[in-house]
């Protein structure tokens, strides 16, 4: 009896989760402009989407920003983890850690607004010397690095703090330079943390809408902001086609990379909307 009940419950949640996605997928093949009617099967929305230069540019931007922001935030996060790990005074360390964690704990809308305000303020400041700040690729990249940073630090710091200092010192005693000792002793131990921090940052960046929305400026779009403007204008069937393609690629990637990773991502991600 209990088993039957739990099966029914699983099925209920399964339908709740997948029915909306299934509807999007079916509608992406609907050969009728209004959703009210079923006009037969078609692939024209896929064709239109792939030929839409704006959507393709947004797609490119999303990938480049995700890759660059993940790389830079991992590098900054590595430095931060090493620096924080070395710090002797616990109080200083706590203060810096709390500051680093603000973007993770604060509402995304506040982080987005505060970044927008600071870019405008920097812009006014630079104006005295005749420089300007253009909202677009650069500001979005900085925004993404900023909200990724706490996640990369928190991925690298725990394995780093477990590294045995004596082994590192032994390497130094045996004639390694501090750089050699770092790359031969410490680095292999923290590599999994670095990689998971990188992946986490990459996926967070891919998904972000709110912060991008405030710091992007007109004329620059990632997929999320593109979807937002398209949907507000009135739904375009191209968006259904895009959802289907994204869903299928996510499915394929997960099947390839296995399951352990999603659990990690999910446990640490912050919802987007």
């Amino acid at each position: 009896m209990k088993k039957v009940l739990s099966r029914i419950y699983l099925a209920f949640i399964f339908i709740l989760l997948y029915a909306p996605i299934l509807v999007l997928i079916i509608l992406s093949f609907n050969d009728s402009k209004t959703r009210a009617k079923w006009g037969g099967w078609t692939l024209k929305w896929y064709q239109q989407m792939l030929l839409n230069a704006d959507i393709m540019a947004a797609f490119r931007n999303t990938l480049i920003i995700a890759l660059l922001s993940a790389l830079i935030s991992t590098l900054l996060g590595l430095l931060a983890a090493i620096g924080l790990n070395r710090m002797k005074r616990k109080s200083t360390r706590t203060v810096i850690m709390s500051a680093l964690n603000i973007p993770m704990l604060n509402a995304e809308i506040v982080t987005g607004i505060s970044l927008m305000l600071v870019f405008i303020a920097f812009g006014q400041f630079l104006n005295h010397w005749g420089y300007t700040i253009a909202f677009g690729f650069g500001t979005v990249l900085i925004g993404h690095i900023t909200f990724n940073l706490p996640y990369t630090v928190l991925s690298i710091l725990p394995p780093l703090s477990k590294v045995n200092v004596s082994t590192y010192e032994a390497a130094l005693d045996l004639g390694c330079s501090s750089r050699q000792a770092f790359f031969r002793i410490v680095f292999p131990d923290i590599l999994p943390g670095i990689l998971s921090g990188f992946l986490l940052a990459f996926t967070l960046s891919l998904d972000d809408f709110v912060i991008t929305h405030f710091v992007k400026g007109p004329g620059f779009d990632t997929l999320s902001t593109k979807i937002y403007t398209e949907v507000r204008k009135g739904i375009k069937p191209e968006m259904y086609a895009l959802s289907t393609l994204l869903f299928v690629s996510v499915l394929a990637l997960l099947l390839i990379f296995g399951r352990s990773r999603n659990e990690h991502k999910a446990a640490s991600e912050k919802p987007v909307a």
Binding site: V23, L242, S243
Partner: peptide
Amino acid sequence: IVTIFIIPMWMNSLLRILAWQTL
């Protein structure tokens, strides 16, 4: 089976809300 319940989270959240709008 656990993966099945996590997959929707990997889809862009705007598209997930768009799905409900459509419904």
